[in-house]
Amino acid sequence: MSAPLLRVENLGIEFGPADAPVKAVDGVSFAMAAGETLAVVGESGSGKSVTALALTRLLATPPARYVSGAIQFQGREVMTMPAPELRALRGKQIAYIFQEPSSSLNPVFTIGYQIREAIEQHRPEVRDVRGEIVRALDLVGIRDAATRLGDYPHQLSGGMQQRVMIAMALACQPNLLVADEPTTALDVTIQKQIMDLLRELKSKTNMAILLITHNFGLVSDFADRVVVMFRGKIVESGPTAEVLRHPQHPYTRALIECVPKLGQKQRRLKVIDYAGIN
């Protein structure tokens, strides 16, 4: 195996007062190979988003504090990277899709403009920017892309907005796409469409995807490997099939049981028993 695309080592991030810190991420280490799909699973507040944002130092300091760790992307250290290099990394190498498409798009700019910004920032060589934007929108399945460039975010449905976010992320052909709960804010049918779209894009490009979710159901047929986070720590990791079949940690087991199985009669959702985990 060649050198990994991304390597995170002993990442530690805190919030709150220094004398009583909230350890949002506490000694997290993992690695990703090029083209690999890694799922990060964990309940709300377990530190998934904080980890994801830290990959390009997107957390505002303060309130956040990077207390330990190293992040290497294609062999370069992100933690000590100067600002211009960091900006070249963001969007160009590592692109993001966020949980809430409606608030993640700027309401006063057209979607065309917002995609254009990304392209102009990282691909100055592109002549036909407009054509490139249209292509990006086509790619994510927005019909009549050319006529929708002038639309404002609020004129689109939630699913469409998330597609625009994906188009924007893919416009610069990043090596790593970080999708932070890309479907949580959407309703079930749209969720499926977006996941199908991501799956399709994954097969078309050789892009690595870091999928963040709290839903093991999304993971099983999508991710190559899984990392399970619990209260800022990684409690289990391994190939998806293996983790699903033989979960080692009680928390993982509890998470897996939370997923209602298709075809099975709807039972009461199981409540995680924290007492048993600690």
Binding site: L53, T56, R90, E100, S104, M168
Partner: peptide
């Protein structure tokens, strides 16, 4: 405090 500024930063725009 809005989310879309995070998006803008994630795109690599200058501060």
């Amino acid at each position: 405090g809005q989310d879309f500024l995070r998006t803008a930063r994630a795109k690599g725009l200058s501060e």
